[in-house]
């Protein structure tokens, strides 16, 4: 159940995509997202899909793994498809009782579904190919110019690093506590909705106490190592653009420019 969640996970393969500067990838994903919302025909989506497939192939991440990451979203995707098919007025294809699927609805629905799938695959490709630390380094560096107008770039990035760092830990902890309570006969899977929400108490209480304990420990450990914010902080790994970053950006931007203007 919990092990299907791949969002925010890193999948190292050492491919060119992995080696790109995080800033390049963040910008590319932004361009990608904007394009997804601007293009409005299936042809264009076909091109985007081919592009995404190519990126996946170059990144050497198994297709199976990407599809697994989509699984938890099946419901939302189906829901989007259904709502649109039923709600939009137009030429009726099939009627089921009071509900009827329209041609326009189906078109719009599948459009949204494809958009959603692309969105998820595109962004998860970013996190799969970039370690959380480099990712937040990239975000911090991109936000740096905004420091002048008072955006706490470093603090934001640090918060994100910590949050990302602790997602797997919390999942692991949840798994462990769930097992410990199941060993004492707790049942998380059956019963009415009320009974099931009640059964979450033995899970949530230990989870929160342990999260607070961890937060405390981490704060203490950071203090002990003299952390005091971003001012004057140097880093071991400096971000640096290479030729491949320019190539990547040029490819992405021109690709989507063509799509958008043609």
């Amino acid at each position: 159940m919990l092990k299907d969640i791949t969002i925010g996970q890193h999948y190292p393969t050492g491919s060119v995509v992995h080696k790109l500067d995080p800033r390049t990838k963040i910008i590319a994903v932004f361009v990608f997202i904007i394009t997804l919302f601007l293009v409005d025909n299936f042809m264009a989506y076909g091109f985007v899909a081919v592009f995404v497939l190519l990126c996946i192939m170059i990144s050497k991440i198994p297709m199976k793994y990407i599809i697994k990451g989509l699984k938890p979203l099946t419901f939302i995707i189906l829901f989007t498809l259904m709502i649109n098919s039923f709600m939009i007025a137009g030429e009726i294809i099939i009627s089921i009782g009071p509900l009827s699927i329209t041609k326009e609805g189906l078109y719009q629905g599948s459009f949204m579904a494809v958009r959603l799938i692309m969105l998820v695959i595109g962004t998860s490709l970013l996190t799969l190919t970039t370690s959380p630390i480099t990712l937040t380094d990239g975000i911090e560096s991109l936000l740096n110019p905004l420091k002048k107008i008072g955006v706490p770039a470093h603090e934001l990035a640090m918060m994100m690093t910590i949050a990302l760092r602790f997602i797997p830990t919390l999942l692991e902890e949840t798994d462990k506590i769930m097992k410990a309570q199941m060993a004492r006969g707790a049942d998380f899977e059956s019963g009415s909705l009320i009974k099931r929400s009640k059964s979450l108490v033995p899970l949530l209480v230990p989870l929160f106490t342990s999260a607070f304990r961890r937060a405390d420990d981490l704060a203490m450990a950071m203090e002990a190592r003299c952390y005091r914010g971003g001012e004057g902080r140097t880093r071991m790994k400096q971000l640096k653009y290479y030729k491949r970053d320019f190539v990547a950006i040029v490819i992405v931007v021109s690709m989507f420019a063509i799509l958008y203007f043609s």
Partner: peptide, 12 residues
């Protein structure tokens, strides 16, 4: 019956 490693973390 199974007593886990660090079982005190399961108290609630």
């Amino acid at each position: 019956g199974l007593v886990f490693q660090y079982p005190e973390h399961q108290l609630f």
